[in-house]
Nucleic acid binder design. Structure first.
Lengths: 229, 229
DNA sequence: TAAGAAACCTGACATAAATCATGTTTTCCA
DNA sequence: TGGAAAACATGATTTATGTCAGGTTTCTTA
């Protein structure tokens, strides 16, 4: 397995691609490759991060636990994404926990490597900035959706999001399989409500399920549902 | 009135402070000073921005209108803040509208001035990045609050936010006076629910009102309410 | 300063969604 | 491979919040 950043394909998808050969070499030398099992914790709410994590394989959820035990998933990070950036850049402790949704491969990159590159390479900083601007826009959209859309609309939207971002397999099932509970935590609702609405969607012929796997049957109608008919 | 960026005090509060004298001079020469009346539109959802706006005086709401006519306020931008950055940096059209909450003074800075500086001055880019990282954290927190806290908790929190960010006058009234409708749009609820809860808070001795002006009487208890007792 | 328009307020009612309770199916692993 | 645990499912009930409807007060401006 190739662990040199210079040759790592996932780099193409994140801001590291704006680094010079030299910088990349430095990052590669200082990074630590790790494998994780489903459920493993990458970092927890309140941690002071000593670096960022580049996702090579698998998916991690970024979430925040509330007093009453519910946790809200704010983002799903997948191959090519870098997590923990925000915290490292702002030099604050994280407000989110990162947990592996399935088996993962990640590279830990110490913050110095990142900050050094930022001080020296405007193109790299700018690239990170662009990514963050994009994330911020998405976050704003989520805020609006949370307050203006019904649970049913948000669940419909979540399935479309999953299809667009993680794709489907040869049989048409979503590549990323979330438990009903995780999905509920993404859209911010109770697990039972989530289950109920999925059942409804199955009855209406919008979705099919085979065990945990879910496939979108009628994307057009699902999209209409997400938008409120 | 002083309109040279080099001498503008609001600059101290935003990322422009990381600019060199030269860059600042260039920005100052290319900027356009504007005054706005309450209710004036700075830009609207979907607009392609040709630059950013630096707030010298007054407050602007950044909000998004939904199909059913409700609009969700995502951020209140005040003196020293720069709005429209996200859109300019990511080179996308805005997802938000910006409207003056009261009489305002703003400076429009063309995007080229900003982007030029970013390509040349890593310190400036980094400063912008830090601001954006902070905004992103706040946005994540809002998402979590929206899904995990009750309307009453969110309203209590909003008042504390208003006090911390805009301060109080000599009589203890909040400097920034929001209509009940605007406040409802900040916390994502119906205007009537917002009014009802404010009345409740008044009865419980947490708040006082004199006309539109609102003062926090018992901040400790208000904070406890925000956190769910 | 009078009148019309906003903004504010409150009650009654409707409803989406949470919660509770209980049962079934699937998954896991000893 | 059998038994426990986790995930899924669904009905009954409660609750928070939205909606509608009718007021009053406060602002605005002609």
């Amino acid at each position: 397995m190739e662990t040199r950043c210079e040759n790592c394909i996932v780099r193409q998808f994140n801001s590291l691609r704006a680094m010079s050969k030299e910088e990349l070499k430095h990052v590669s030398d200082s990074k630590i490759y790790k494998t994780l099992k489903k459920g493993d914790v990458i970092f927890e709410e309140g941690d002071k991060l000593k670096g960022v994590y580049c996702v090579r394989e698998g998916v991690s959820k970024l979430s925040k636990l509330s007093a009453n035990g519910k946790d809200q998933i704010v983002k799903l990070a997948t191959q090519g994404e870098v997590i923990g950036q925000r915290s490292v850049i702002a030099d604050e402790s994280t407000n989110l926990s990162a947990i592996a949704m399935n088996d993962m491969e990640i590279c830990f990159v110490p913050k110095d490597s990142i900050l050094d590159a930022m001080h020296k390479n405007p193109a790299f900083t700018l690239e990170v900035l662009r990514h963050m601007a994009h994330d911020l826009k998405e976050a704003d959209d989520v805020i609006v959706n949370m307050s203006q859309k019904s649970v049913k609309q948000r669940i419909a939207e979540a399935f479309i999001y999953l299809k667009n971002n993680f794709g489907v397999d040869h049989k048409g099932f979503l590549n990323l399989t979330l438990s009903r509970e995780d999905l509920a935590n993404v859209v911010g609702t109770a697990t039972e409500s989530c289950i109920r609405i999925i059942s409804e969607f199955k009855k209406e012929g919008l979705l099919v399920a085979s065990g945990k796997r879910i496939g979108i049957v009628n994307e057009k109608k699902l999209l209409e549902t997400a938008q409120g008919f």
